[in-house]
Amino acid sequence: MSPSDRIVFDEVSKFYGEVLGVNRVSLAIPPGITSLVGPNGSGKSTLMNLMCGLLQPTVGRIRVLGVAPGDPEQLGRAVGYCSQHDAFPPGLTGLGFVEAFLLAAGFRRDEARRRAWQAIERVGLAEAAKRKVAAYSKGMRQRIKLAQAIAHEPRVLVLDEPLNGLDPMARAEVIALFRDWAGGGRSLIISSHILHEVDMLSDQVVLMNQGYVIAEGDIRGVRGEVTQPMQVMLRCAEPGKLAARLVQLDHVVEVQLHEDGGGLHLRTRDADGFYALLGRIVVEEGLAIETVTPLDDDVHAVYEYLIGGDGDAG
């Protein structure tokens, strides 16, 4: 893939005065869906605003499909952007809002109207299109922003927390729209702290913390790169007996008894094999198992591992 397909950050740093926004970011984001994941204040929005030319990097160079963010005429065609703020120019209807910025971009009147309708239908907001944006609900505002961002058919879509405030139905619809949209070799960049969405949706993830990119790539790759063997927690009546059997299995690398004597914690390199054997051991020993909890079934564990884990799991 040539650099003109990619969004390239070259040693980019952004400081807000003394405060670090992002530091020494080097990335080449290929087409497809890329998620920026990180806790609050980790620099996701900063990175997005940098690639949209809304912020100037303190040092470093950015190219979006070969276009410099300082060239609005080219960048505005190539990129559609949703900010995380729920704000709109005052006094406009949904349709008027989308249409206004198409007109400002230089589309002719009928073309602007047609595209505005098309985009609004695409986000499923046709009934509310003629109402004032100020009277929209949070989810409707998210969707009208999305419509505005996609109306001119950009090749790159940069969405800051686009799933925030959507109900499960709307979320599924929007996710379907993302998949459909990113299908044709286009780039979609979203930020989120909700990891399950990222897990299901993205081709790549970029994990951020405190202004640094700490891992990037295919989500399974990221996990393989950083995780130890898989962890399982068992709660049962006689953990000692169980532990004695488990340590004999060669894919189990570690067993820890809980201090309260009511369970154990183990790490295994072969989760499927472990589950298959567990049933047999339980029957043979006549154990009463309360719960079996896999501790890192999803990206949550990766996230926690990387970011230092004062999260809510475990």
Binding site: C52, G53, L54, P72, E73, Q74, L75, G76, R77, V79, G80, Y81, S83, H85, A87, F88, P89, P90, F101, A104, A105, G106, Q148, H152
Partner: peptide
């Protein structure tokens, strides 16, 4: 006014020279 209503970025993201 656009800064205060937080809508200046819509203008800046339009394919229009500033």
């Amino acid at each position: 006014g656009d800064v205060m209503s937080r809508s200046l970025h819509y203008w800046f993201m339009s394919p229009v020279r500033r």
